[in-house]
Amino acid sequence: MLIRLDMASDVPIYQQLRNQIVLGIGSGKLKEGDSLPTVRQLAEDTGVNVMTVNKAYALLKNEGFLEIDRRHGAKVSRAPAADGDFCQRLEAELSLLIAEARARNMDRDTFLAVCHRFYDNIISRGGNE
């Protein structure tokens, strides 16, 4: 699986790294039990600071996507439930996007069609591997 980091972006590198790995898990490219490179290896190849990679891994661990094992490094863990914090964030971000879509005169069906397409897109990306 490829990871892309945009050095010119406003999004912090650790956040980009976290997002890329979540994308990998969501699309199925990374499966439960798959191991990730060690912090040092990933920092070496991306050229970013070890602390940055560490921060991304710690974030993913707190969110329940990764397990960090002392001997085997980082591993994709069993999918965490979509509840609590995530539901709150989903609702907040969706409300804003729906409001903006309505403000731009996008109707309900078009909005939902876009949602469907992108949901399927993520799944088919994993299937291509």
């Binding site: 699986m1 490829l2 990871i3 892309r4 980091l5 945009d6 050095m7 010119a8 990998g24 191991s35 990730l36 490179p37 290896q41 990933l42 070496e44 190849d45 991306t46 050229g47 970013v48």
Partner: peptide, 17 residues
């Protein structure tokens, strides 16, 4: 190509050693 994008392959990074 992009000038400021770094692309790494996780499989290679893992297997490199």
């Amino acid at each position: 190509g992009n000038t400021r994008t770094i692309t790494v392959d996780l499989e290679v990074t893992k297997a490199k050693s």
